[in-house]
Design a protein around this nucleic acid. Structure first.
Lengths: 140, 140
DNA sequence: TTGATTGCAAACGGTTTGCATGGGA
DNA sequence: TCCCATGCAAACCGTTTGCAATCAA
């Protein structure tokens, strides 16, 4: 499994005696289908376009609950939180103008040999962050 | 290794008609000698241990002024700003236990071909973030 | 002299918390 | 029924801003 999905969460919730509410389902369904990397405010806005509505507190509650279980990663760009429902190892491109974060498949960048870094610490994983202008902002 | 230093800043300030105050000098001198990656609050605390003192506003002013000129990079880890006075292109190792950020020389990791990424955007630079356990935390 | 910089405090924006009410299991 | 989750609003915390006083050039 490489991406947040409702079924997994329902199962986990049952195992941990946690309640699945309509609000949580709505938030998770939005996240599992999100193409971009939404901020908590994005989630609030989209989820509240139709029933069931969720408060800011509920959005943050749910996000943190998912993060604790490793079902959601966070990316901080310019100090604001963006959520990444894709937990397959991958990299990011961040536009310096509009702040958009795009996924880059792991396979698109060559392997990196981490044995040289053993004198600094035990490397468990790594990610690449590319910065520049996205296609959209290039045109303007 | 290129690093923030007072002399460079003094020169730039003169060129741009900017004033060097004792507060700015104190902040810059701390940053140029900082071994770690201090937060704005760290800077405030250290600088205010002796004359000249600087207010929070002055610390942020100076930080932003340096960032705009590329003399200081920012790293966001867990949503808080850390300043990196090393502006030679380099990478980071972040310990998942103690949160320490260590610099990794650019030369220690192989070149990455970014031409493949042109369909996503114009890549201007990139950085690698390695995560794992630092030497210190491995021993415990 | 003069306009950039300072300190202070208030404002700001994103995130968290406290508490009474509501609703899954 | 029994808690967990919710909504609301206040609190919180790091960062920014407005403004009068100050000081580098």
């Amino acid at each position: 499994m490489e991406r947040l999905n409702l079924k997994t969460v329902e199962k986990l919730a049952k195992e941990h005696g946690m309640k699945m509410t309509p609000q949580r389902r709505a938030i998770i369904m939005y996240l599992q289908s999100a193409k971009n990397h939404p901020t908590p405010e994005d989630i609030l806005k989209v989820v509240n376009r139709r029933f069931p509505m969720a408060s800011r507190a509920t959005v943050y509650n749910t996000i943190n609950w998912l993060k604790e279980r490793g079902l959601l990663k966070e990316i901080f760009e310019g100090g604001i939180m963006r959520l990444d429902p894709n937990f397959h190892s991958h990299h990011h491109f961040i536009c310096r103008k509009c702040g958009k974060v795009e996924d880059i498949e792991f396979e698109m960048v060559p392997d990196i040999d981490v044995t040289e870094l053993s004198r600094i610490g035990a490397v468990e994983n790594f990610e690449l962050t590319f910065r520049g202008l996205c296609k959209n902002c290039q045109l303007k």
